[in-house]
Design a protein around this nucleic acid. Structure first.
Lengths: 231, 231
DNA sequence: TAGTTCAATATGTAATACTTAATAGAAATT
DNA sequence: AATTTCTATTAAGTATTACATATTGAACTA
């Protein structure tokens, strides 16, 4: 009685719930009608009736979009489309403890890639205040006595770079990724942070003071070399 | 009759719904109990009873986590935690038409940063096949007669670089971002793509064939210069 | 032992009712 | 007439109940 098994090869029928479908319908609706932030979208009951599903299902779909910051709802006023924070979705998922080792490693690589490539944004947007801030961090680092303090300087230094880049999305990206890297801290704590590689933080600042954008990428590469070698 | 306006400064009371609270509870629950992918989580009714809310509300919260790929549910079997795709959340939000101009620009900058910083991953993970693939693209590009074909080569070339980097998360990031850049295509179509800057695709391939990792970042910078200058 | 039937179970969906907050419009006050 | 206050309405938030559906595992049959 064994039935041809080939029939079942495709078995895992991508099962979509009503809520999934409603969600997709809403996305399409928003896109096709080119609804803009601030514009209202139909009432829950209207959607439910239009799609022939229970209000319950509609609410599940809306709840998802609301979580992503795509819509906001006020009682009576109904719901309006909002300009979502593009990095919101990332923030909702990324929590160090539920990420597997492999992904964390990939995110760390991503960070290295970003920092090496950051140069042009930095040179175009650096200000006196930023450079002074970096100076201060470098000095704090030199005076630091404890390892904890040194690591804090390390984090501050690199965070300041992202700030200097003047790209809100990029900064946000970094802020979200940051906690993931804490697992690296143990390893890092064994290194000398003022000069992770042969290029020190002070060296990097010096380059930033200059207008030599060409020098930046390879300087940062050398600074991060111990990490890069670890790939 | 004007009342002290300071009273209303904090007015926008961060209103959280029950679903929001349940969602947070679930996140905490998962983290604190360090539940791993594959492990089961409580039944809907159990959660509802434990938190003293209706099953409806619980389902909204679960629906959100399910969308992000954090949990999966099967009838009867209950729900299990899954290893989420970290980039899923990003994918759900990023749709070119609902992103405002400013954010799109920031994402484009992000792309430039990535490509300049990509070098070390490329040199560590390049294979003969990858290099051959790039060669083929360059050749196709030279032979191309239409602008459409040339743009396709441009996209293929840079996509292949991300592929070469051997970082699944990074590649996925790029794939998600890609559609956002289509708006740049119009502008790009006016440029000569074999040599966007003074450095051509062929030049980049030559560098990749060599083992001169130092040369890569500035070569890519020059290649992307027209875009960088546009910042 | 193998295969079938069947009950138990947990999610998915529907329907209904009620609560709550915000709004608009009517009514009342100045 | 202009402003404030009440009131009804509206739409989202929550709760409850009921039923559908698919999956599991145990009981049953051949």
């Amino acid at each position: 009685m064994s039935i041809d098994k080939d029939l079942f090869k495709l078995k895992p029928i991508a099962y979509t719930t009503m809520a999934d479908q409603v969600e997709n319908h809403l996305r399409e609706y928003i896109i096709k009608r080119s609804i803009k932030p601030g514009d209202p979208i139909p009432k829950e009951t209207e959607i439910a009736q239009a799609l022939g599903v229970s209000r319950n299902v509609v609410r599940e779909a809306l709840s998802r979009l609301r979580m992503l910051g795509m819509i906001e709802s006020r009682k009576k006023r109904g719901m309006i489309l909002t300009q979502p924070d593009v990095m919101k979705g990332l923030e909702l998922i990324i929590h160090p403890t539920i990420l597997d080792e492999n992904v964390r490693k990939q995110l760390f690589e991503l960070r290295l890639v970003l920092e090496v490539g950051l140069g042009d944004l930095l040179f175009r947007r650096k200000t006196e205040e930023h450079l002074k801030k970096l100076d201060a961090i470098v000095e704090r680092e030199h005076k630091a006595t404890t390892q904890i303090e040194r690591i804090r300087c390390e984090v501050d230094f690199h965070s300041t770079l992202y700030e200097m880049a003047g790209n809100e999305t990029l900064k946000r990206f970094q802020d979200i990724l940051m906690p993931v890297f804490e697992y690296v801290v143990e390893y890092e704590s064994k290194l000398d942070h003022t000069s992770v590689g042969s290029v020190t933080h002070a060296d990097l600042v010096k380059i930033l003071y200059s207008n030599n954008a060409e020098a930046y990428p390879n300087a940062m590469r050398k600074h991060l070399m111990p990490h890069l070698d670890h790939l």
